[in-house]
């Protein structure tokens, strides 16, 4: 971070807040307003978790990837609700190794900070001292400075090779190459789900991968012509459809006007009801309810 108080792009002034919390050895949460909101959890001034709907949490990374079976996870989580530490529970039950757990937690934390940078900075936030940490968090946290620099490096890598990461995050890539032309299983899995309906975030959740990793791979596949990342042209199948109008039909009818204090409904002067005159007269008479003073004025 620069000595002026701002941090690496695209985090700006938020970096100064995080640095301040680090120097105060803050324990609690910093809620950064979105959309989507991001909650950064600190312990003794170090980042131990980042939670945002914009990036998969560690449970998604471990479950969707198949690293931990769902049944084992559910049992461990049920017990952890009383202890408050799901990581310790998973380790005690040998559902995951300590090294893989730590790697996953760090991956999720850095990805959450990366995803936070996909929306404009300086959104404001709220400090919540003493807020409870999530069930899964790092034992030894990461300093905010290195976490922000790493996230900014990932933004820069996508920006140099493709364009603004925020733009890529909004697109719904479409596979345009044969899976046989893809160099690895990881890339094949990604290509198989790039169906034009999923954003990079959706792909990350579907695959149990981090958003930043998915975006980096999409850039590589796009460079080789294996995935199309162009925005969908307007007028596509999901474009907004306007109500159809008959070619020779009348235009929209004017709304009836209602006067202040009236308890009946009266047609506006000159309104064409589209009804035969006799029917229109009876209908108009029906609007004159007893005690309707306004009706007497007409």
């Amino acid at each position: 971070m620069s000595p002026t108080g701002t941090g690496p792009a695209p985090y700006g002034g938020l970096a100064a807040d995080m640095r301040s919390l680090h120097h105060e050895s803050f324990t609690g949460a910093l809620l950064v307003f979105g959309p989507p909101d991001t909650t950064l959890h600190f312990r003794q001034g170090l980042l131990v978790a980042a939670r945002t709907p914009a990036a998969p949490a560690p449970d998604t990374l471990l479950l969707r990837s198949g690293a931990v079976p769902e049944q084992d996870w559910a049992a461990a989580r049920a017990h952890a609700l009383t202890t408050g530490d799901l990581g310790a529970e998973l380790l005690a039950r040998r559902h995951v190794s300590a090294a893989l757990l730590e790697l996953t937690l760090e991956r999720s934390l850095l990805d959450g900070v990366f995803a936070m940078g996909l929306t404009p900075s300086n959104r404001g936030g709220e400090v919540r001292p003493g807020a409870l940490p999530p069930l899964l968090r790092l034992d030894e946290g990461v300093e905010p400075g290195p976490a922000l620099r790493e996230a900014a490096r990932r933004h820069d890598a996508v920006g140099r090779r493709w364009g603004p990461p925020a733009d890529l995050a909004r697109l719904r890539p479409v596979a345009s190459g044969a899976p046989e032309a893809v160099p690895s299983t990881v890339h094949r899995d990604l290509l198989a789900r790039a169906d034009g309906r999923r954003t990079p975030r959706d792909l990350a959740f579907a695959l149990g991968r981090d958003v930043s990793g998915v975006m980096a791979d999409l850039v590589r596949l796009a460079e080789r012509g294996l995935v199309e990342t162009a925005p969908r042209p307007p007028g596509g199948p999901l474009s907004r459809r306007l109500p159809e109008r008959g070619q020779d039909g009348p235009g929209p009818r004017p709304l009836t006007q209602r006067r202040p204090g009236a308890d009946g409904t009266h047609l506006a002067p000159g309104t064409d009801t589209g009804l035969p005159p006799e029917v229109a007269a009876r209908l108009n008479a029906a609007h004159h309810v007893p005690g309707d003073l306004l009706g007497d004025e007409e």
Partner: peptide
């Protein structure tokens, strides 16, 4: 050195 393949981040 342990490196994240997709992002190039060094874990350790």
């Amino acid at each position: 050195m342990l490196v994240d393949r997709a992002t190039g981040h060094a874990f350790a």
